[in-house]
Design a protein around this nucleic acid. Structure first.
Lengths: 226, 226
DNA sequence: GAAAGCACTACAAGAGTATGTAGTTCTTGC
DNA sequence: GCAAGAACTACATACTCTTGTAGTGCTTTC
């Protein structure tokens, strides 16, 4: 007797979400995309904040996000979205071929980008490429990405270099040892441990163990592999 | 549109070196390249060993190197060439869209690649792109490269899988956020945050924020780069 | 339609942390 | 010989975590 239910989402079109503050841009993209048979714009927002609170963002197949956005920047937005659902596919859009920002976006979790002067067919191609597991991007950005892959150990920030003792403490921190445990292991007083920890926090510009560990590992101040 | 902002060392053509064991391939590329006004093949070799001993290799503007080579592989070859002159521009050539090898080549120092079924114009475009500071590659490879930058692809350990919500919390932990700050950001109660943290600790077999962050980063449960 | 599991909310208390301030010893450079 | 700095020791306090226990509402499974 039960009537068959309809599937919740539209079957064969991919859901695109647009986050772009320029209304003209936003609407023209929307028109272009909605005109295609295999995709549609499930939602469009003028800023990250609104997008992040929406339901559509989690269901999007592809998200096109402006980098230059009022309020929370597109880069912050990407981080936030990826934090919430790591499998999101995000393409950045930018007016300039702004290497630094584009690169940062990619590091933060975007998988490609397009400049705002793209043609209709390029826009659509970028969306399809992204959804099919590719990365739409120019050769110039691609090179930058590759070079970052080749040379990791460029450490020259002189003030973020830890002393031997500090690095040792940081390793213990990463193992979750308490002040007391470290004190015992290092033949130090508890306050001696505290002394080093303060200095580490100062040098890394943090104020908690977790953040120190995070920075330490990310900057390879302590061993990543063990 | 030939770029001419680089100070010219050689007359006006860029010097291309080819390392490719298949004679037909090698000679046809040579013919194509020599036919262009802005480039020429200064030398062509059937294997890395010969190329490495040559004088031309050091002077090349662009080197096209086969991956599948008898004797020293193209990947080894790249390493060797880059060791000797770090600024060399090397494009890999391969029959397959062999992700693993291509990726390894890029890590080793190549800046792009092309498949052997490229058209004449694609071959020439790849050379020019490479020489102008870009990276010729397909979107599929580009994505692979980017993901390695973002890091989290190898996540299969069944017992250390975090839920989306947990992973999100772990990212906040890595940023040193307090329970209260996370609660606000995630629209949760402080105890709701606590609930997830308990579960994270349980899954990762730890009992402090710092240790959770350490394990999370080392197992790439959260992004290493941001 | 009961049982189980998940995603929370809620309260509590001891443990551990972050940070300020201050003093000691030893080494190094001027 | 003395100032400066690194490497501690010491004490205090507010704050944050960790962990135990318990309850609610919703969904899935049998």
């Amino acid at each position: 007797m039960a009537i068959k239910e309809f599937p919740e989402t539209e079957p064969d079109r991919l859901n695109v979400v647009i986050v772009e503050d320029n209304r003209y841009m936003r609407e023209s993209w929307q028109t272009i995309i909605d005109f295609e048979r295999d995709m549609r714009v499930s939602a469009a927002f003028a800023n990250c904040e609104a997008a992040l609170q929406s339901r559509e963002i989690a269901q999007a197949d592809v998200i096109i996000m402006d980098i230059e956005l009022p309020g929370m920047s597109g880069i912050e937005g990407v981080k936030e979205i990826k934090r919430r659902s790591a499998q999101s596919t995000i393409i950045m859009a930018t007016v300039f071929e702004d290497d630094k920002n584009v690169f940062q976006s990619l590091q933060s979790g975007a998988i490609g980008y397009l400049t705002k002067k793209v043609s209709t067919s390029e826009l659509l191609a970028a969306i399809r490429t992204a959804h099919n597991g590719g990365s739409p991007m120019s050769p110039a950005i691609a090179r930058k990405v590759i070079e970052s892959l080749q040379s990791q150990p460029a450490r020259k920030n002189p003030e973020s270099i830890l002393s031997d003792r500090e690095r040792e403490v940081l390793e213990y921190l990463a193992d979750g040892k308490s002040y007391a445990a470290m004190a015992k292991a290092m033949f130090l007083s508890v306050d001696g441990v505290g002394y080093h920890i303060r200095n580490i926090y100062e040098k890394l510009q943090v104020n908690s163990r977790a953040e120190a560990v995070s920075v330490g590992l990310r900057k390879r101040l302590i061993r990543l592999f063990r």
